[in-house]
Nucleic acid binder design. Structure first.
Lengths: 173, 173
DNA sequence: ACCCAATGGTTACAATTGAAACTATTTATT
DNA sequence: AATAAATAGTTTCAATTGTAACCATTGGGT
């Protein structure tokens, strides 16, 4: 009885199944990290401002680029138009956004922060930056640059590898 | 009429609201990157093996550490016990997992891959590693090490910053 | 032995999210 | 001008996920 039971024997070196350790697997690690960060932020925004992450993202882009249409907002926030539609509804309800319609193309809406929305944004933005600062405090200055660069590279590559229908990369327009 | 309307005037330098660009904001970027990667992988696993990400994670840890309980699986996969319970149900239904009960503590289950499950795992694992390789191909060897290190640091920091009730960091046991 | 708190795990219900279909309007084609 | 195809955005319905409540079993005190 010397090791022929495949459930007991040590796997062959070079065996892929043997090399994979979830705790070092980059996609897994990215997901866990991103989740902790997002949930931690989401919790704070929700508690203090009644803002969801999608709503916060929309406010952030509209603060910088007023009068975008819903679809333009979607592009800049990496959300789909349904998510934008829903988040916009919430922001309109809380009067943090105003919507007008492009005269000349009445399908197109133009979104911008209301004065109230702008005031809220001015309170949220510093918190967001503080959180980011606190997170990056664990890194040296050069690591911070490196981080941005690595994310750039990985993002580009991830898009290229992504073979889903309609996923970013081969928009048919 | 020289610039007193706050909605038109250029924000003060140092104004947080002015410094925040969503497209450079690390939490946002991590989230977008992680989403592309996860969805791209999830799509492949679902198509080729009928596996969800939670199921795949469970298989990965059980391949390495057989006979964990559901809660131990939860700890090693960063999922909560409800998610594990559901994913396990699916894996049992597809006969990729077998469950026995710890005799001596009949609450505790012991989970392990069935031979079928093991066979599936041996086909999935190489794909997972190939994807990771392809993703990391965009990086030099030293950048790869750096990436793991940066994720370590950020993860640690993110946990420390996370003030949610019951979130990882101050488990009361 | 008995009671109460803690633990492992599942279930039920609510909230979120995703995919597809739909309305309204505009643009292109003939 | 009429029809078809495309675009902006919303709605609907299904699937996923989160939260809380819920058994069952165990461990600890008394």
């Amino acid at each position: 009885m010397s090791g022929t039971d495949p459930s007991i024997v040590t796997p062959q070196p070079g065996d892929a199944a043997d090399q994979l350790h979830l705790e070092h697997f980059i996609p897994y690690r990215l997901s866990v990290l991103s989740n902790i960060v997002s949930m931690s932020i989401a919790d704070q925004y929700e508690r203090e401002f009644g803002l969801s992450i999608p709503q916060w993202r929309i406010m952030a882009v509209l603060a910088r680029y007023p009068d975008l249409s819903a679809i333009e907002v979607a592009e800049r926030t990496a959300m789909d138009k349904v998510a934008v539609s829903r988040a916009v509804r919430g922001l309109l309800a809380s009067r943090r956004l105003v919507r007008s319609y492009d005269q000349g193309d009445r399908r197109r809406s133009m979104l911008r922060l209301s004065p109230t929305g702008h005031a809220v944004y001015k309170r949220v933005a510093p918190l967001a930056l503080q959180y980011e600062q606190a997170l990056l405090d664990s890194l040296g200055a050069s690591d911070r640059q490196t981080l941005q660069r690595l994310i750039d590279r990985l993002m580009e590559r991830a898009k290229a590898l992504d073979g889903r229908p309609g996923a970013t990369g081969s928009g048919r327009s």
